[in-house]
Amino acid sequence: MASAAPVPMPAVFAGWWERVNGSPAWQDGIFWALAALYGLVAASSFIQVARIQQRVPEYGWTTQKVFQFLNFVVNGARCSVFAFRRQVQQVNPQIFQHVILDLPGLAFFTTYAMLALFWAEISYQARGLDTDGLRSGFYAINGVIYAIRVLLWGLLWWNPNPSMLILSKLFVAGLSFSAALGFLLYGGRLFLMLKRFPIESKGRQQKLSEVGRVAAICSCCFLARCVMMCFNAFDKEADLDVLDHPILNFVYYLLVEILPSSLVLYILRRIPSKLRLSQYHPLSSG
Rank of each mutant, 00 (worst) to 15 (best):
M1Y: 10
M1H: 10
A2P: 11
A11C: 05
F13Q: 11
R19H: 08
G22F: 10
P24S: 11
F31W: 15
W32T: 13
L34Q: 03
Y38C: 08
Y38D: 09
Y38Q: 07
Y38E: 09
V41F: 03
A42T: 09
I47P: 02
Q48K: 13
A50V: 13
R51D: 06
Q53T: 15
Q53R: 15
E58L: 02
Q64L: 03
V66L: 07
Q68E: 07
F72P: 10
V74C: 01
N75S: 11
G76D: 00
A77Y: 15
A77L: 15
S80Y: 06
F82Q: 13
F82I: 14
F84I: 12
Q89A: 14
Q89I: 02
V91W: 05
P93W: 05
P93L: 04
V99T: 03
P104G: 09
G105M: 05
G105V: 08
L106V: 03
T111A: 04
T111P: 00
Y112R: 00
L115C: 07
A116I: 12
L117I: 00
W119F: 15
E121K: 14
E121V: 11
S123F: 11
A126N: 07
R127F: 02
D130G: 00
D132E: 12
D132K: 12
L134N: 13
L134M: 14
L134P: 14
R135S: 02
R135D: 00
G137F: 03
G143C: 04
V144W: 13
I145M: 13
A147S: 14
I148P: 04
R149Y: 13
L151K: 01
L152A: 06
G154I: 05
W158G: 02
P160S: 10
N161L: 14
S163W: 14
L167C: 10
L167G: 08
F171I: 05
F171N: 07
F171K: 04
A173W: 02
G174R: 14
L175M: 08
S178H: 00
L181Y: 14
G182D: 10
Y186V: 01
G188I: 02
R189T: 03
F191Q: 09
L192Y: 11
L192I: 09
L194S: 03
K195Y: 08
R196Y: 08
R196L: 14
I199L: 04
S201W: 03
G203H: 14
K207V: 01
K207E: 11
S209Q: 05
V211P: 07
R213G: 05
V214P: 02
V214R: 06
C220A: 12
C220N: 04
F222M: 08
V227Y: 09
M229A: 15
M229N: 15
D235N: 13
A238S: 13
A238Q: 14
A238K: 12
D239E: 14
D241F: 06
V242A: 13
D244Y: 11
L248S: 10
V251E: 06
V251Q: 05
Y253D: 06
Y253M: 03
L254P: 00
L254C: 07
V256R: 11
I258A: 00
S261H: 06
S262H: 01
V264P: 07
V264R: 08
K274T: 13
R276L: 13
L277E: 12
S278P: 00
P282C: 05
S285G: 02
